[in-house]
Amino acid sequence: MNHPVPGQPVQVPVLALGDVLLVSLQGELHDGMAEQLQQDITSRISTSRVTGVVIDISGVDIVDSFLGRVLAEIASTARLLAARTVLAGMRPAVAITLVELGLTLPGLITALDVDRAMEVLSQGGS
Protein backbone atom coordinates (compact mmCIF):
# COMPACT_ATOMS: atom_id res chain seq x y z
CA MET A 1 0.00 0.00 0.00
CA ASN A 2 1.21 3.41 -0.94
CA HIS A 3 1.26 5.90 1.93
CA PRO A 4 2.70 9.29 1.09
CA VAL A 5 4.14 11.16 4.04
CA PRO A 6 1.57 13.51 5.56
CA GLY A 7 2.47 17.12 5.02
CA GLN A 8 3.50 16.49 1.43
CA PRO A 9 0.41 17.00 -0.67
CA VAL A 10 0.16 14.73 -3.67
CA GLN A 11 -1.70 15.80 -6.78
CA VAL A 12 -4.68 13.59 -7.48
CA PRO A 13 -4.41 12.36 -11.09
CA VAL A 14 -7.52 12.61 -13.26
CA LEU A 15 -7.43 10.31 -16.29
CA ALA A 16 -9.69 10.61 -19.30
CA LEU A 17 -10.76 7.27 -20.83
CA GLY A 18 -12.95 8.18 -23.78
CA ASP A 19 -15.81 10.17 -22.31
CA VAL A 20 -15.22 8.85 -18.80
CA LEU A 21 -13.05 10.51 -16.17
CA LEU A 22 -11.19 8.12 -13.90
CA VAL A 23 -9.98 9.47 -10.58
CA SER A 24 -7.89 7.28 -8.34
CA LEU A 25 -7.59 8.39 -4.73
CA GLN A 26 -4.65 7.05 -2.72
CA GLY A 27 -3.68 7.09 0.93
CA GLU A 28 -3.82 10.35 2.84
CA LEU A 29 -5.99 13.00 1.29
CA HIS A 30 -5.78 16.51 2.72
CA ASP A 31 -8.95 18.54 2.97
CA GLY A 32 -7.51 21.12 0.61
CA MET A 33 -6.61 18.48 -1.98
CA ALA A 34 -10.11 17.05 -1.87
CA GLU A 35 -11.61 20.46 -2.51
CA GLN A 36 -9.10 21.06 -5.31
CA LEU A 37 -10.10 17.75 -6.86
CA GLN A 38 -13.75 18.73 -6.70
CA GLN A 39 -12.97 21.88 -8.72
CA ASP A 40 -10.76 19.99 -11.20
CA ILE A 41 -13.44 17.44 -11.97
CA THR A 42 -16.15 20.05 -12.33
CA SER A 43 -14.09 22.09 -14.77
CA ARG A 44 -13.08 18.97 -16.76
CA ILE A 45 -16.75 17.97 -17.13
CA SER A 46 -17.79 21.41 -18.24
CA THR A 47 -14.97 21.86 -20.76
CA SER A 48 -14.90 18.43 -22.41
CA ARG A 49 -17.37 15.74 -23.39
CA VAL A 50 -17.66 13.75 -20.21
CA THR A 51 -20.62 11.48 -19.56
CA GLY A 52 -19.29 9.58 -16.60
CA VAL A 53 -16.92 9.90 -13.64
CA VAL A 54 -15.43 6.93 -11.82
CA ILE A 55 -13.87 7.64 -8.43
CA ASP A 56 -11.71 4.72 -7.34
CA ILE A 57 -11.28 4.72 -3.57
CA SER A 58 -9.79 1.25 -3.21
CA GLY A 59 -6.55 2.89 -2.05
CA VAL A 60 -8.25 5.00 0.62
CA ASP A 61 -7.89 3.95 4.27
CA ILE A 62 -10.65 6.09 5.69
CA VAL A 63 -13.53 8.22 4.47
CA ASP A 64 -14.65 10.73 7.08
CA SER A 65 -17.64 13.05 6.88
CA PHE A 66 -15.57 15.71 5.12
CA LEU A 67 -14.40 13.45 2.29
CA GLY A 68 -17.89 11.91 2.21
CA ARG A 69 -19.38 15.35 1.65
CA VAL A 70 -16.85 16.13 -1.10
CA LEU A 71 -17.66 12.86 -2.89
CA ALA A 72 -21.41 13.49 -2.63
CA GLU A 73 -20.94 17.02 -3.95
CA ILE A 74 -18.85 15.84 -6.88
CA ALA A 75 -21.67 13.45 -7.81
CA SER A 76 -24.39 16.11 -7.48
CA THR A 77 -22.42 18.66 -9.47
CA ALA A 78 -21.63 16.10 -12.17
CA ARG A 79 -25.32 15.19 -12.38
CA LEU A 80 -26.22 18.83 -13.00
CA LEU A 81 -23.70 18.77 -15.85
CA ALA A 82 -25.26 15.57 -17.21
CA ALA A 83 -22.52 13.18 -16.14
CA ARG A 84 -22.97 10.17 -13.87
CA THR A 85 -20.58 9.42 -11.03
CA VAL A 86 -19.76 5.95 -9.74
CA LEU A 87 -17.85 5.41 -6.50
CA ALA A 88 -15.77 2.25 -6.84
CA GLY A 89 -13.73 -0.04 -4.62
CA MET A 90 -14.71 0.97 -1.10
CA ARG A 91 -13.05 -1.37 1.39
CA PRO A 92 -15.21 -3.32 3.86
CA ALA A 93 -13.72 -1.61 6.93
CA VAL A 94 -14.37 1.80 5.38
CA ALA A 95 -17.97 0.87 4.51
CA ILE A 96 -18.68 -0.39 8.05
CA THR A 97 -17.20 2.76 9.56
CA LEU A 98 -19.13 5.08 7.26
CA VAL A 99 -22.42 3.40 8.12
CA GLU A 100 -21.65 3.59 11.84
CA LEU A 101 -20.75 7.24 11.39
CA GLY A 102 -24.20 7.74 9.89
CA LEU A 103 -23.05 8.47 6.36
CA THR A 104 -24.73 6.17 3.85
CA LEU A 105 -24.25 8.40 0.77
CA PRO A 106 -27.70 7.59 -0.63
CA GLY A 107 -27.30 9.67 -3.79
CA LEU A 108 -24.15 7.92 -4.97
CA ILE A 109 -23.94 5.02 -7.41
CA THR A 110 -21.46 2.45 -6.12
CA ALA A 111 -19.53 -0.44 -7.65
CA LEU A 112 -17.22 -3.16 -6.41
CA ASP A 113 -14.27 -2.03 -8.52
CA VAL A 114 -13.33 0.09 -11.53
CA ASP A 115 -14.30 -2.63 -14.05
CA ARG A 116 -17.77 -2.90 -12.58
CA ALA A 117 -18.04 0.89 -12.46
CA MET A 118 -17.26 1.08 -16.20
CA GLU A 119 -19.87 -1.61 -16.77
CA VAL A 120 -22.48 0.41 -14.87
CA LEU A 121 -21.68 3.53 -16.93
CA SER A 122 -21.81 1.68 -20.25
CA GLN A 123 -25.17 0.11 -19.41
CA GLY A 124 -26.80 3.46 -18.77
CA GLY A 125 -29.93 3.58 -16.61
CA SER A 126 -29.28 3.80 -12.91
Binding site: E28, D61, I62, V63, A93, V94, I96, T97, L98, L101
Partner: peptide, 25 residues
Protein backbone atom coordinates in the same frame (compact mmCIF):
# COMPACT_ATOMS: atom_id res chain seq x y z
CA UNK B 1 -0.37 13.52 11.16
CA UNK B 2 -2.99 12.87 13.82
CA UNK B 3 -4.65 10.24 11.62
CA UNK B 4 -1.37 8.53 10.90
CA UNK B 5 -0.30 8.54 14.55
CA UNK B 6 -3.66 7.10 15.69
CA UNK B 7 -3.41 4.43 13.01
CA UNK B 8 0.08 3.41 14.17
CA UNK B 9 -0.87 3.35 17.86
CA UNK B 10 -4.06 1.37 17.20
CA UNK B 11 -2.20 -1.19 15.11
CA UNK B 12 0.50 -1.58 17.77
CA UNK B 13 -2.12 -2.04 20.50
CA UNK B 14 -3.66 -4.91 18.57
CA UNK B 15 -6.85 -3.29 17.27
CA UNK B 16 -8.33 -5.15 14.29
CA UNK B 17 -8.62 -3.48 10.89
CA UNK B 18 -12.26 -2.42 11.32
CA UNK B 19 -11.61 -0.97 14.77
CA UNK B 20 -8.49 0.80 13.48
CA UNK B 21 -10.53 2.34 10.71
CA UNK B 22 -13.21 3.46 13.17
CA UNK B 23 -10.60 5.01 15.46
CA UNK B 24 -8.80 6.86 12.69
CA UNK B 25 -12.11 8.13 11.33
Amino acid sequence: WVRQHVRQCAAQLGFGLVQQTKLVT
